[in-house]
Structure formats: C-alpha cells, structure tokens
Design a protein around this nucleic acid. Sequence first.
DNA 1: ATTGGACGGGTAAGCGCTTACACACCCAAT
DNA 2: ATTGGGTGTGTAAGCGCTTACCCGTCCAAT
Lengths: 355, 355
Amino acid sequence: MTGIRPRPATIYAVADAAGVSIATVSRVLQGVGRVAEATREKVLEAARGLDYLPGGSARALAAKKHEAVGLMLPELTGPYFAELLVGFESAAADLGLSVALLMTDEPGLSRPLRQLAARVDGLAVMARPGQLADEELSSLARRLPVLQVAAGLRPDSIGTENTASARELTEHLFGHGRRHLVFVGDPDLAPDAAERHAGFIEAHAAAGMAVSEPARVGYSEDDGRRFAHHLLDGDERPDGLVCVNDEVAVALLDELQRAGLAIPDDLAITGWDDVMTARYTRPGLTTVAQPVRDLGGLAATTLYRWLTTGQQEHDPTILPTRIVLRGSCGCPEAQLAAIRPRRMPVRESLKEEPE
Amino acid sequence: MTGIRPRPATIYAVADAAGVSIATVSRVLQGVGRVAEATREKVLEAARGLDYLPGGSARALAAKKHEAVGLMLPELTGPYFAELLVGFESAAADLGLSVALLMTDEPGLSRPLRQLAARVDGLAVMARPGQLADEELSSLARRLPVLQVAAGLRPDSIGTENTASARELTEHLFGHGRRHLVFVGDPDLAPDAAERHAGFIEAHAAAGMAVSEPARVGYSEDDGRRFAHHLLDGDERPDGLVCVNDEVAVALLDELQRAGLAIPDDLAITGWDDVMTARYTRPGLTTVAQPVRDLGGLAATTLYRWLTTGQQEHDPTILPTRIVLRGSCGCPEAQLAAIRPRRMPVRESLKEEPE
DNA sequence: ATTGGACGGGTAAGCGCTTACACACCCAAT
DNA sequence: ATTGGGTGTGTAAGCGCTTACCCGTCCAAT
C-alpha cells in the first residue's frame, strides 16, 4: 500500500480491455440503455480487473449535476450539531446524495464556502446572524438552492418550534411557584435563542409580570460555569434559570451544586435540547426535546425535492418540540437509592484475595 | 428566492462580460500568472455581477485533483465520532481541502463508498471489522490513498493508545482492592475494543489472576442498561466493571444506582473516552481521555502529506491517552454539598408574590 | 535605429465522462 | 424475397474548466 500509485484507470482503459467503446462501458456501469448480457459481463470484469471507478468530476461535468449536497454549520461541537448532521447525512445517503461538510466559526469564510458550493447541487446552511455576509449568501442562493436551517421564519427555511415551548416552559416554572426567573442565553446570537427568549417574555407578559434582562452568555459549558460564578458573586436573586441550551444548564447546575446550592429547592434550572447528559445529572435536567435529527433529515429531503422539482416549497416547515420534565425544575423525581428495592448481592469483603 | 433559477454563469459568460478570454478569467480567479491590474478588476467585477463560481467538477477534471478528502465512519452517533469529525474537518479546512462525509451501518455500502471515493483525492476510513469487504477497500486503496483510522496496528493506520492504558486502568482497580472485574464490551466489534481487552488481560496475567469472560455488549446506552439488568438478574458477582466506552458505563452506573447499588462501594465502574456526561454523573466517571479531536486532525494532515508527497508515511502514529480519575473507581472525590462553603443568598419564601 | 526581454493576454488542446444520434444486424411478418 | 421493427453498439459532440504555448507590445539597452 505504500509508495507510488499508478494513474487510475479511465473509461478508455476499460473499453480497451473489454474490446468495446466507451459508450458501452458507460451504459453498463450506469445500468442505462440496452446492453447484451455477454458484453455487460465483459465490461464488468474489465472494470473490476482495473479497479476502475468513474471519476466523479468528469461524470458531474458531463451530467451537469454533482449528486451531492452540502451542509454548512457554524461549528460542530456539541450534541446538537452532531445530531443534525447525522439526520442530514443519512437522509441524503438514502436519496443517493453525497454529503460535503463545512463548519467554521470564522466570519470571513467566503473561500471555503464557495469551494463547497462549487461542488454540490444544493446547500443547507445554518448561519448565525452576522457570521456570514448576507450578500455572500444571497449571491450563492442565486446560483444554487440554499436552504436555511433554524434561521427563524423565512420562506427558504426550516426549523423547530421555539416560542410556544419556551412560553410553556416558563409557565411551568411559574406553576412551581417561581417568580424571579432569568433567561440565560443571548437572544442576539441565534434566531433560535431569540425565539425562546420571546416565549419567555410572552409568558411574563401574560402573567402580568416584569421581565428581567437576559443573561447574555454563549452556548458552552464554560459559559455556564462563568455565569454560575457571576451569580454566586453578584447580588441577583433569581429562583429559576431558563437556559438557552443543555450545556449551559448542566454546567450551571454542577457549579451551583458544588457551591452548596440545592437544586431545585434553592434554584430551578431548565435547559434545551435534551442531550444525553440531561438524563444523568442529579436531579435530572428538565429540558425541551427537539427532533434535531429529523430536522437534519428534513433539510436533506427538502433540498432533494427542491433539486428534483426545480421548485421551492412555499411554506417553511416547523417541527414540534416536547417538554421533558425531570427534577431540576421542581418536579418530583423517582427517588434514587433512597430505598433499595432490589439489592444485587455483592461480595461482602472486598479485601479478600481472589479465588 | 423561489421558483426557477437561471443556469449558472460559466467562465465564458464572465470572459464576455469582461471583454477578455477565458484564460485570463481563469488566471485572475486563481491568482496565478500575470494579469494587468485594470484587467483583473474588470474580470472580478464581471464575475461578481454574474454571481460566478467556477464549477467544481470542470475545475477538478481539468486540474486532475479534487482538493477534497473523504471521511468514512461506521456511524456518527455518540460524542466520539462527532469529535473525530470536528478535528478532521477543521484540519482539512485549514489545508484548503473540502470534506465529503459518509457514515453507514450497512455492511453492503459499496455504492455510496465508491461514490465518495470518486470525488475525493484521499480517504480516511474507520471501518469495523467485517463491515466492509476487505476486497472492496483494497480495490479502493489501489486507486487512491486510503488511511485507516483506529484500525489496530497497520502501516496505513493511525490511532490512539489502548492496551497500556487499559492495563493501567485495570491495575488501578486492583489497587482499590477490586478482585473480580468484568470487561464490558465486545473485543470482536472493533480493534480498539480488542486492544483494550488485551490490556485488561495483561493486567490480570501480570497479577497472576484469572480473567473472566468479557461481557459482549455493544457501544450504546441501551447496551449498558440491558447489561445492568442482566447483572441484577444473574448471579455474577463482579466488584468492578471496565467498560469499553463511557456511554455504556454511564448507563450502567445510572441503572445500577436506580436499583439501589452504591457506586463505587458495591461496584466500581470505569469508562473510556471522557465524554461530557462523564463529569456530570455522581460519582463522576473514571475514564480514559483520548485526543479524539487530534486524531481526526492527524488523519487529515497525514492524508494531506500523503497526497502532496505522493509517498505514504512509514510508521503508524499512535496518540497517547490519559487516565481521568473521578469517583466511580473508588477514588475520593470532592464532596458535593456536604458542607455549603458559600451559600448564595436566595429569597426565603418562594410562595410570595413577585415584587 | 535595432534588438531582446518582460509583460499581458489569446489560442487551443485536453481532462474523462454522458448521451443524442446513426448504423448494422437479425428475425418476424408480409 | 422484401420490408420493418427491435437490439446492440459505435461515433462524436459537448460539459466548463486549466494550462502549455505562442504572439504581440512596449521599453530599456546597445
């Protein structure tokens, strides 16, 4: 496997080896047109013997399509993006499309993005406001289908429901007697965050309550921990925290517990996304489950329909979410190890030597 | 943005608009060769006005390279693959390479894999044994550089250290007085698992202890929970569980705790990967941190060197790991909320009306 | 005044495929 | 025997780029 590699075989080499024309080779390999069974076998064998693989670029050039879609994400850390990607890729694969991927945090990502756009038939983009020059994106959109994911309400967009869920979640916290809630997250960082914050405000308005300023933090655990210390050191006195995502929430939960706070008694905490960690904290994290994987799949299929029909769907699709109640909001949780219902028999003394 | 889209502009259109030949357009856009400043500006403006983007397929065909690398993963659920991907993509992007992605669980994935291979210059593959017909893969390897990731020791492979770490971890458990350990994971499912199991065995051999059969479970939380119930129902009596990854470990931990077991007193548990959740369980999960992101980056850069030099590196690179001790193995952990060192002042009565 | 570079840009030959079209060929129907 | 309709295959024209090569200009040096 080491060392120099011979130039890959072309369709001409296969045609020669099989004693046919390149047109026939192409027909056999694509399975279109009529080819005599004997010929087909000859071609297949020749192709196999030469490790032939039709070059994607030549194929795409001649066929005027790439059979590939692109996905651009602002970053890929965190379970959210991973899930989205999984949904996107597996749906795309089912549709016979390859997936090209781009993620970046740099604002001036023009180059890689254009490189990506040049090799796909359509693009799904999840852009944070300001990250991508809108000019850049609309120039691309004039050239190929560009689908916006989780970008708020726009005709070329799909996403998940945010505002109503946030309102419901906030009202749930009211139901637990909480009166001084803080929204933890920056509404300006992403449309999703803005919509959740809007729901948070709606709930307050409907209850005739005043709303405090949102705590403008980012999306990472570090942001959560930092805010925890800010809370501990400052003189704000919230009794509930509605966090923009689970990572911030669990970090906050952890840091506050380490400082001696009782969750949810002293402070209720909710997250968003229902990531894996949310079911392993003590108490479990109350959060909002979004069908992120489905969202990714929807992006791929929507793009596919757009590509094949040449016509964009009219209405943006909004996927429903589900509130997941665990202990961190104040809901009762199944007690853990308080009673020991079935005790696995274990060896008595661990100090003994092995058998 | 809706509706029919005009055919994208070609290099000819730009040349016409700028009043030059296509060669000049190509030179300007690539930044090679000498072009008068005035001409360059004309071209750039024409290109901008037409939303021109050099078609990737034509470019790749003419230049005989895709400027793209592919990554194939057996699946993408779980933090491990997400991290790997992040490392791969960001390193590739820095090198000016696009990334094409493929993941699948199907054994017969020949089609999508070949489609992927046809549009990249090199391929990084993480294949589970048996999933991919070896014949298929070596045929591809004859055509383009194929780098194996975490595939055990082979010349065309890179990976992370497993055996020594597993041995050390196992011996650490011995140090906690544990004598009846079970390896939870199937050594046949992946080379990584096999190597970890080998280290587990080594430790036993060195201590002159007998080794029990491994519990052959998969990699998911469900596998962990299932095994927990199997343990609870059966009559095995281990005092320590060395799990193949963190997902299995945390699920096991959770399920066993719910059943009333005290971890680590009744049973020690360790994981592998140091995923986010590992630092949020109570007790925290002792595990092995691998530089998975670096591994992904290494895959991209190794592939890049291979592509540019045409020569494969000789020795497989093995990245070092680090054991992360938390409470689940029996190590002391900072007490949580036992004392409340700094108590955040909160409102006394939550039942009060808002201000 | 001649000449030789440097400079700028055009010409054209591919790159490796797909696919419309044309053309043999063979056999059934007349 | 002639005709006509499949069948199977080859011919050739692109697809939209890159790039080697060549050819004018212009100006400094002689």
